[in-house]
């Protein structure tokens, strides 16, 4: 975990240790369920697919299994129904978060499979998701091939290009990155430049709500410095 935050900021040992401290503080404050909820919320609000939280998903699944075993024990030992149903509710909520998280990701893959497989977004997918994306792309290509592309004249049969004369792939659906998102700062980010030219600068203070273009805060989301809501 420490190495993750170190490579993220990558400038000076001071910031590195600062990152370590906040991460340690965060780890104490938040449970895995909270972390999963955050990952789920970010994934839900971000227009493009985010890094797969492999370790977190693994831990969440372990805890779900533990809860399931506990529940089984409870029913065997005849523990009070109310207690059982409270545990059950807790389990259901965690399961929902996990399923919904994985589902949102699959749906993003379904939507932007070709774009994802052509860019470095590919590395954000889990192994299973990569297999899913590969298969989906093949299926979609076959479908479009046999119903449209193979029936068009030579030179216009590419799935990626409008015609043979296009120099780049100009027919691939891509997520809209300049859409607006609601986001909440965890700690003060300070003066933040919203565009390339530096005309728009906003002071991001701790624990405040903003509506900004996803494109401009993309880096902050990926670095875990800001949460989408």
């Amino acid at each position: 975990m420490a190495s993750g935050s170190g490579s993220g900021s990558g400038s000076g040992s001071e910031r590195w240790s600062e990152g370590l401290e906040t991460e340690a503080a965060m780890a104490m404050e938040t449970t895995d369920v909270e972390l999963l909820k955050r990952a789920w919320r970010n994934e839900k609000a971000a227009p493009e697919i985010l890094q797969f939280e492999a370790a977190l998903v693994l831990r969440a699944r372990e805890q779900i299994q533990l809860l399931e075993e506990t529940l089984e024990e409870f029913t065997e030992n005849g523990v009070d129904d109310l207690v059982v149903s409270l545990y059950q509710m807790d389990l259901d909520r965690t399961l929902f978060l996990l399923r919904s998280y994985l589902r949102i990701r699959l749906q993003k893959i379904e939507k932007y499979m070709i774009h994802i497989s052509k860019t470095n977004l590919w590395n954000r997918l889990s192994e299973q998701e990569q297999r899913f994306a590969k298969r989906c792309t093949d299926i979609m290509e076959k479908h479009l091939e046999q119903s449209v592309l193979s029936r068009l004249p030579y030179g216009y049969q590419s799935i990626l290009k409008q015609s043979i004369s296009s120099e780049e792939d100009d027919m691939v659906p891509e997520p809209q990155l300049d859409t607006f998102v609601f986001c909440k700062t965890k700690s003060a980010v300070g003066a933040f430049q919203l565009d390339d030219t530096g005309d728009e600068i906003v002071d991001l203070v701790a624990d405040d709500l903003y509506v900004l273009r996803y494109k401009s805060i993309k880096g902050l989301v990926e670095g875990g410095r800001i949460d989408l809501v």
């Binding site: 509710m89 919904s100 699959l106 998701e129 899913f132 299926i139």
Partner: peptide, 27 residues
């Protein structure tokens, strides 16, 4: 074909993703 792709993903994960479509209120 597409359903089969979703199913094989779910069986790799050993988790059914087609249930729990709305947040649970009461179990």
């Amino acid at each position: 074909n597409h359903s089969a792709a979703i199913e094989s993903y779910m069986s790799e994960l050993d988790l059914d993703l087609t249930v729990d479509m709305v947040p649970p209120k009461d179990p």
